[in-house]
Computed example of a mutant assay.
Amino acid sequence: MALQGNPNEELRLFQTGEHPCGYWPDRQARDLVLDPQDARLGALYPTALGWGFRRSGDLVYRPHCAHCHACVPVRIPAERFLADRSQRRCLARNADLECRVVPAERTEEQFALYQRYLGQRHANGGMDNHGPHEFDQFLIGSWPHSRFLEVRAARIDDQRGRLLAVAVTDVTEQGLSAVYTFFDPDEQARSLGTYAILQQIAWAQREALPHLYLGYWIRGHRKMDYKRRYQPLEAYDGRRWVDFGALPDSP
């Protein structure tokens, strides 16, 4: 399968075989994948975001299931975002935290937090045995323009505070893409996942980047429903980006 991104350059797409769905255990899934061997993949990635694709490691993919269309690409128009009351409370609750953007390079501290997060939040989820190599392969890859947004407790006596969360974020001219976030599972009351997204929106606003891409909202999936709480929200309907509320059967 091929797409024309440039009149003189063909972009090759592959369809994977069926594999177990990561969200619905009773379903099989398939993906469209941009040619992993294409040397232009890093340059094509921003355009692919606009087509509803997402990155996992060096793989750029989009769900393409024959009998299920629950996965819907969504993004936040950064300048138009308005925090609701719950999100404002989250920001106030975490006003003591410090955020900084750092290079996407694994540290022992980050890796230890990643292992704790997987062990407590995603036990038996297939990633339990991730080591340093898998961390680099899954989160960093070889070509993406990524950064880590670190969230830390406040400094004490000029000493850097304890690491509480890391939001892996791709930076493109299309906007930021929220790739993956892991956080201290013992700090549940802080709602660090929500806080990380709010900080990524603020980052996009500071850099005058138009969007924060959130990956896929999954119709009917309780754990993925949180994404529709960020408003306004745009969804990709397979041809163009539309207001989330304009989707057929959207909540």
Rank of each mutant, 00 (worst) to 15 (best):
R30L: 00
D157T: 13
A165V: 05
L198C: 06
T107V: 10
E134C: 04
G5S: 08
E105R: 15
P248K: 08
H211P: 07
Q115F: 07
P248H: 07
M127V: 08
E18R: 09
H133M: 08
P185T: 06
E79A: 14
P210G: 05
P251G: 09
I76Q: 11
L3R: 10
G17R: 12
E18M: 04
Q110L: 08
H221W: 04
A95Y: 13
G141N: 04
P251M: 10
A104L: 03
D26T: 15
P210L: 05
F53S: 00
F53L: 08
N8M: 10
G220E: 03
A123V: 13
Q137S: 14
F81K: 06
N129T: 15
Q115N: 06
Q174T: 07
R85N: 03
R228Q: 08
P7I: 11
L13N: 03
S56E: 07
L247C: 04
Q4I: 14
P46R: 06
N94H: 12
L247G: 02
F81W: 09
R222H: 09
D157K: 15
L59T: 15
G22F: 10
S142A: 11
H69Q: 09
Y226L: 04
T194F: 14
L13A: 04
V60I: 13
S191Y: 12
H145V: 01
P77W: 05
A178R: 08
G57C: 08
R93V: 02
L214V: 06
A165W: 14
P25I: 07
L44P: 00
C68Y: 05
L44S: 01
H19Y: 15
V60S: 03
Q205D: 01
Q115G: 03
D38G: 09
L118S: 06
R55A: 01
T107R: 12
D225K: 07
L82N: 02
A112K: 15
L34V: 12
R240L: 01
M1D: 08
Q28D: 06
H67L: 09
F138E: 01
Q115W: 12
G220M: 08
A104P: 05
V166P: 00
P63W: 09
W51K: 02
A154F: 10
S250K: 09
D243Q: 11
E134L: 10
D184C: 14
A95F: 11
L82W: 05
H67A: 11
H19K: 09
R147K: 10
L176F: 14
F148E: 00
Q137H: 14
Q174V: 04
G161E: 06
F111S: 01
G193K: 09
Q199L: 12
R89N: 11
F244E: 01
S146I: 10
Q28A: 09
P25S: 13
C65I: 11
A196F: 13
D225C: 11
E134H: 13
D96T: 04
L13F: 12
Y23T: 08
I201W: 12
A39D: 01
A2D: 05
R239T: 07
R80K: 13
L44G: 02
Y236A: 01
D136L: 10
Q120P: 08
P232I: 10
D26S: 11
L3W: 15
L176T: 06
L44E: 02
H133R: 15
D136Y: 07
F244H: 02
P185E: 06
E98M: 15
T194L: 15
L198D: 05
R55N: 00
E79K: 12
G125D: 09
C65N: 11
R206P: 01
Q120H: 15
G126L: 10
Q231E: 04
